[in-house]
Design a protein around this nucleic acid. Sequence first.
DNA 1: GTTCCAATTGGAC
DNA 2: GGTCCAATTGGAA
Lengths: 170, 170
Amino acid sequence: MSAISRATQTESSDRLAAVQLRLENLKSILPQHDVAWAECQEVQRSPTTIAKSGSTQIKRDRSTVPIGHYRTRVARSVYKNLNWDSYSLATRALLDAVFDKETLGTKNLSGIKIDSKGRQWSATNMLDPQKISDIVQLVKRNCKVDERRIRKIIAHKCGDTASTKRIKSL
Amino acid sequence: MSAISRATQTESSDRLAAVQLRLENLKSILPQHDVAWAECQEVQRSPTTIAKSGSTQIKRDRSTVPIGHYRTRVARSVYKNLNWDSYSLATRALLDAVFDKETLGTKNLSGIKIDSKGRQWSATNMLDPQKISDIVQLVKRNCKVDERRIRKIIAHKCGDTASTKRIKSL
DNA sequence: GTTCCAATTGGAC
DNA sequence: GGTCCAATTGGAA
């Protein structure tokens, strides 16, 4: 409750970092913290290593690829076709792969909804911070672009999706 | 008229570059095109050169410094105190020095005004493109930051000024 | 009181 | 239809 009221007052996407930090700290205690990034797995995977990889239960799905510390899974077909020359397009493609349009159209980065007069915060309005973190970190790595700009693209994507959803429902 | 109608349709701040290009082309024909930047003049000015500088009529005012291709003049006191570590603050300070609050609060970069339903373009709504160009080029030079971001700050400054003006008038 | 930020919105391509 | 852009707006630091 204190977390919610604090968030209602001051949580903006940037200061949301505090929340993510808490999550990150929790995760860092877990044994799987030292995670293989998607591209590492891609590079290392050769026929001989595939045979051994059955020992972990994570590899059950070969059509998806895990990204980031939280192992958010992205369809391999999407991952392979990502265009890293444009961090905007890459981010948007990842968002489409990780979330459905309903989620993108109804949630946003901070969980803050703005209607006429005032903003309200609700956890249900927030995109899964772990998945967002995974996407941001991946794009940041591959495009070497400021994290803020990536989050801006995500916010934009949410706005665009909500907009088209609204238009369609007329 | 065709220029206006074209602008009404498609002129965004970025495509405003076309307009500025025309202006720039005109100016480039003039003899003063090869302009000394403010910092160059600052560096070169020694007691001996000051004595000679009376030959040009531009130097009449020693309390201001010219910046950019269009020799927009900025108060020397402001120029000396610019903080180039923050392109945002530097840009805002320059705007305050070049324009008055009334201008900043009523005009914007593109000349497009948006009220409920539709946008309208008018040259009188546009900040002097030459002065804007001077500021942008100067900040770009000293902060090595993308021109778009500088223009974004300018747009923001206009928005902020208009906002406070509106609140004050209540 | 100014700066900064994020969401929203409408238009353009 | 999706992407990008600029202006607007309200709240926060």
